[in-house]
């Protein structure tokens, strides 16, 4: 009798210990939805459509993770965050992951205690100038007025660039990207500088995009990627390998169109089999279903499909793959092997 009570108490203690240390993965599974932090709106990366359904490149990552963990790409609660509230929201546990074109920097990773799980877009700071100005290089911009967002790394990069090239400029401080577009179009500044993807998106909205050129210089590194809190490695692994699965799928030619067929039975390519769960135990190691990667890829397509659908050359934003091409095609997008 006494023994039973003792065992019972031990079992209860063990259970409660397990409950206390339950990680984000278990929380998400118990809740049935993934809380994903996105921007309040950035063309091509995240914005709700007319029906309130979120769309975009960063949104695609959220949906893939939701599909991998819960098997349902619509089981996502999108929590819009501003540049000011995003880190608080993640640190306080309001969101499970942040996919909000956030630059991976030393201090954010180390000092703010976040874990960047990978890079889904390699960006860099560029310059937009009217063709009529007649400049072909950012080094010709001596004495130019430059619209730049205040309090950003953009502003610091700009100062560094002009100082190291020993030319002068006059900054025109602006607050938001929308304000920058207006100021630039109104002629308040000769050139507008921000991330190149943002410049391309901005130029795409002009009435005559052909009258403006993106100067060839890219003056900074802005690797953007999803991030999670420090200290929950299981959850970080889930997000990291979901992103890697999307990248690997493109490398292996697995698309949302042929995935059903490839996943139906083991193929000749063992890596595809491991990825899609028809061979090996990779899903179980993550604590997910064997077909987790297949669900993630089916949600919005592989990395390349997501890119083409949201920000690629056939969209109004019209970004070329550039640095974001597969490593096999001269870009930097590279995933560790699924083995």
């Amino acid at each position: 009798m006494k023994k039973t009570v003792l065992f019972g108490a031990l079992a209860v203690a063990g259970l409660s210990a397990a409950a206390a240390s339950a990680g984000t993965l278990d929380d998400v599974k118990a809740r049935g939805t993934l809380n994903c932090g996105v921007t309040t709106g950035l063309v091509g990366f995240a914005a709700p459509d007319a029906n309130g359904v979120w769309e975009g490149f960063d949104v695609g990552v959220c949906r893939a993770v939701a599909a991998a963990v819960l098997g349902d790409e619509t089981a996502v609660e999108f929590i819009p965050t501003t540049g000011k509230t995003r880190f608080t929201a993640l640190a306080s546990g309001e969101i499970d992951m942040l996919a909000r074109n956030t630059t991976w920097t030393f201090s954010r990773d180390v000092d703010l205690k976040f874990e960047f799980v990978g890079i889904n877009y390699y960006d860099g700071q560029g310059f937009l100038a009217p063709k009529a100005l007649g400049v072909t290089s950012a080094k010709d911009l001596d004495g130019a007025t430059v619209c730049v967002q205040t309090g950003t790394t953009t502003e610091l990069n700009l100062a560094d660039f002009f100082r190291s090239n020993n030319i002068s400029y006059e900054p025109v401080p602006i607050e938001t990207n929308a304000e920058g577009q207006q100021q630039y179009l109104a002629g308040a500044c000769d050139t507008y500088t921000t991330d190149a993807s943002g410049l391309a998106a901005t130029r795409a909205t002009f009435e005559n995009p052909g009258d403006h050129v993106l100067l060839p210089e890219i003056i900074s590194k802005e690797p953007l990627g999803p991030l999670v809190r420090h200290g929950d490695n299981d959850w970080a692994d889930v997000v990291r390998w979901t992103l890697n699965a999307l990248i690997t799928a493109e490398e292996l030619g697995v698309t949302s169109a042929n995935i059903e067929e490839l996943a139906a039975a083991p193929t000749n390519n063992p890596e595809i089999n491991r990825l899609l769960g028809t061979a090996g135990e990779l899903g179980g190691m993550l604590g997910l279903e064997p077909n987790w990667a297949m669900m993630a890829i089916k949600a919005g397509g592989n990395y390349g499909e997501l890119f083409e659908k949201n920000i690629g050359e056939n969209t109004p934003i019209g970004l070329a793959r550039g640095l974001n091409a597969m490593w096999t095609e001269g870009g930097l997008i590279y995933s560790p092997p699924f083995r």
Partner: peptide, 24 residues
């Protein structure tokens, strides 16, 4: 709207000006 609540101005600043079809 600055604390990511979507009142009418927040809607305009955020989701509407970021919608691909209405940007600009």
């Amino acid at each position: 709207s600055v604390i990511s609540m979507f009142d009418v101005v927040g809607m305009i600043r955020g989701p509407l000006s970021a919608a691909t079809e209405w940007n600009g």
